[in-house]
Design a binder for these strands. Structure first.
Lengths: 142, 142
DNA sequence: ATGACTGCAAAATATTTGCATATTC
DNA sequence: GAATATGCAAATATTTTGCAGTCAT
């Protein structure tokens, strides 16, 4: 990731979102982490250097980012939403051993379909459940 | 759906789950609905004819069914888990207009892969976001 | 009577809302 | 200074946990 604060500001402005300090920090946090953070984890990271930030602002902001399609929601665990910086479509793996969510690149013929049996398709979310390669290695040592 | 109470009882027994009255009712409710219910909607349906049933039992039971792979969790909205009676793997569509979750049958070459870049795959969940055919029809009338 | 199942109440977790204050153009 | 954004506190929604009572074998 080479995207810096100035570029993130441009992205927000181009989508009609005022690039306030909090909003920039929230976007920077998610795109810089390389992970799939929840609203709560974004809050916990930011509150260290920005002690006055509130969870409400984090939630408001993330919701706005979703609407403008700056972020994509990952709803894999079912009890929390994670946020993915919207680069290109890809699948995910939820590791049943360590709980991590890992990017997986697979070819999928359905990724760019616009219509399926009369339904209009906007996007495809695919995720696998299984055991990640790291956990597989640990298991095979025993 | 032709599966009846007797067959459901067999399914539970064969998976090592004691087929109590509550458990049978819960499974019957989900498999008979043809929909994708949440724990809360299962509870609200059952409490009408079984006023003493508790949400705790519904949650306990559904969790046990997941572990034994009698049901599959649908985690599409991100703030609630829906339950699908596990017949054969299929994709879903979340309609952005009406909010319904609809079964979609698509061919997917990744549905039966057991391994991807070192990760061990147990199952694939795929869902589309878009507008369902019913809502598309309504839209085109204007 | 032993172990598993059920259900109430309370806790924990995740998210939303109302409203007053603060910030920005 | 009008409009928008922020943040506190309280409310809501979903799920989990502790524990006591119940049921079936």
């Amino acid at each position: 990731m080479i995207t810096n604060s100035v570029e993130l500001k441009k992205i927000l402005s181009s989508k009609g979102i005022k690039p306030t300090y909090q909003r920039l920090k929230i976007l920077e946090c998610i795109q810089g982490s390389g992970k799939h953070l929840t609203a709560d984890s974004v809050y916990r990271v930011l509150v260290k250097e920005l002690p006055t930030i509130s969870k409400t602002t984090v939630y408001n902001t993330l919701k706005a980012f979703l609407k403008k399609e700056i972020l994509v929601p990952l709803t894999i665990t079912g009890t929390e939403v994670r946020f993915d910086y919207n680069t290109h479509p890809h699948h995910h793996l939820l590791c049943e051993k360590c709980g991590r969510i890992i990017d997986v690149n697979v070819l999928c013929p359905n990724l760019h379909r616009k219509e399926i049996s009369g339904h209009c398709i906007h996007e495809l979310h695919g995720y696998f459940r299984g055991v990640c390669s790291d956990c597989m290695k640990k298991l095979s040592k025993h």
